[in-house]
Structures are given as C-alpha cells and as structure tokens.
C-alpha cells in the first residue's frame, strides 16, 4: 500500500530525514519509533504531501505522490499530532466539514458521520461544541476526522500524546480495528509499550535515519537470546570490557563509563554465572538489573542513548 524510498529532507544544514525507506502493507500497522526530533513527523509530512522531499519517492497504492498528489491524498487519512479541530463547532459539524472536503454529502455523509461517532464513542455528545470536550474526547474526534472518507492508508502521528490510560487503550483498539478492516496504518510514537503492543512491524528512528526495522520479535532478537543485564556504578568502559572478556557467555550490547548493557545467555545458570563473573571482577557497582530484552534496550544499543533522553 505504501512504499517509501530513500526519503530525504534537509532544513538548511540539518538533515531532518536522511534516506528513509520502508513499506506498509494493507491490514498491517507499521510503527515509527523514536524520540522527539527523530524525524518521524517530518517523514509523515512528506508522505502526506505537506512538504516536498529533497530526494526520494512516496508511492501509495502504486501512485507516485509527486506525480499525482490529489489522487494520493484522497487515499490518505492523516491524523496529526496536534489536536486540529474547530472547537466552536460540534463533533457532527466538524465531521460534516471534513466529509465535505472529500466530496461526501447527503445521506452518505450522514451515515459515515454517525458510524464514526459510534466508533470513537462520541455519539451521545455529538451535538455539543468541541470546546466542552475532555482531552481524550478531542483526541478521539481528531482520529475520526482522519477516517471520514474511508482512507486506505492512515497516517497517525503520535495520536495518544497527553491522554489518560483508559482513553489510550480505547484509541489503540480503534486503530487495531482499522487494520483488521484492511487499512494500512503508519503509526509514529515514542512510547515503547505502545509500539510493542500495537505494531506488526517497527522501524527504530533517530536523527533522521532508520537504525533497524522488522517485526518486534525480530528486533528483539538482535539483542540475542536470554536476558539483559544492566550495570551502573563507578567504573570505566575498559573495566567492563575486560570483565566481559573473562566471563563465559556474556556479550556486551552497549558499554559506557558508569553504565553497561550486557546480554546474558538464557537460563538460571547463565545469569548466576554472569553475576559471579561481574562480582569477582571488582567493579564498583551501584545498581544491577536483570530483565527480559525490550525495545528500550535495542534503542540504547542502536543509538547509544535512551529513548527518553
């Protein structure tokens, strides 16, 4: 459904997006995971035709965005990060306006509007001005506006920012439902749990480039079998490297002064042996954690910094 090839965007000296390529199939949710400033929103803006890329191409349903922007945009449903609603209008009026933009009218528009109000759970408040809504309700309406014309490719840019956990769960359920109904979904987020639980495929993005992409399982596999051992304390990078070399089975994922991320072979013996090797190495430790590998660890391994940095 969506094919992005070598997409690049520069703002002056800054390369906001640098040679990004990925694809999203119909019925699948593809996540762009990265911290703020990673280039996710710029990527979405180029796919939505809002800003022209410096180089690269975007194809939707086989149509080249550069050559046929209007046809491509009719297939897109864009849900921006900021809540973009007319707050003096009601939910119905907002939906009517967006439906009108896509040429919907009459009974077809009314039916679609009512279906969407049901979908996002706003049917009972549909005649109230949006300014009276809670943040979660506005987020849900923000999503509904992007779906009014039944798009085949849905671009969701951090749609859960600033809403409560329950509203987030509801919204993610709606997104899963859209994919089940056959839409291709491109979903950007900086929430690891969201990306892990929602996305069929992920690309980890930072400083405008994609560092890794694949299914959640395949990405985690890059960390190796077994557990992740995180060490913090007053030690140097070389001290940890020497300790890892002396042990059996330990593998360094990320080493730094005062902090290290190590892969420990699966099984109790593996963890015990690893801890013993660390202990006997004489490193001055202040904190040791052992956990199952997650995307945070992978992000740290790939970029050298935490997702929350």
């Amino acid at each position: 459904m969506l094919q992005v090839q070598n997409l690049t965007k520069t703002f002056g000296e800054i390369r906001a997006v640098d040679g990004v390529s990925f694809g999203v199939e119909a019925g699948r949710i593809f996540g762009l995971l990265g911290p703020n400033g990673a280039g996710k929103t710029t990527t979405i803006a180029m796919i939505a035709g809002l800003i022209p890329p410096a180089s690269g191409s975007v194809h939707v349903d086989g149509l080249d965005l550069a050559a046929r922007p209007a046809d491509v945009k009719r297939r897109l449903g864009v849900v921006p990060q900021e809540i973009a609603l007319y707050e003096d209008l009601t939910a119905r009026e907002n939906l009517d306006f967006w439906g009108g933009i896509y040429g919907l009218r009459g009974k077809a528009l009314a039916a679609r509007r009512d279906a969407l109000l049901d979908l996002v759970g706003l049917a009972d408040r549909a005649r109230e001005p949006v300014r009276n809504y809670s943040g979660g309700m506005k987020r849900r309406l923000n999503l509904a506006l992007g779906l009014v014309h039944k798009p085949t490719l849905i671009l969701l840019d951090e749609p859960t920012v600033g809403i409560d956990p329950q509203a987030r769960i509801n919204l993610l359920d709606v997104v899963r439902g859209l994919a089940r109904d056959g839409a291709a979904v491109l979903y950007t987020t900086h929430y690891l749990e969201e990306a892990e639980n929602l996305c069929d495929e992920l690309a980890i993005m930072d400083h405008g480039t994609i560092h890794a992409q694949g299914t959640v399982e395949s990405l985690k596999a890059e960390l190796g079998e077994g557990s992740v051992l995180t060490l913090q304390g007053a030690f140097s990078r070389e001290d940890v490297a020497a300790a890892v070399e002396r042990s059996t089975g330990l593998r360094a994922l990320e080493l730094d002064d005062g902090r290290a991320l190590l892969n420990v072979p699966r099984g109790r013996a593996g963890v015990g042996a690893a801890l013993e090797a660390i202990y006997t190495s004489g490193l001055h430790l202040t904190d040791v954690t052992v956990k199952e590998p997650n995307l945070e660890d992978l992000f740290l391994k790939l970029t050298g910094r935490e997702l929350r940095d």
Binding site: A45, G49, L50, V78, E82, I83, A84, I101, Y102, L145
Partner: peptide
Amino acid sequence: RTGMLRRQLATPL
C-alpha cells in the same frame, strides 16, 4: 496556528 491548515492541506485541497 492551530494546525488546521496543515491538516486541510493533507487533503486534496
């Protein structure tokens, strides 16, 4: 200012 412009221009408008 409200982001509505970007949103509208992501449509065929």
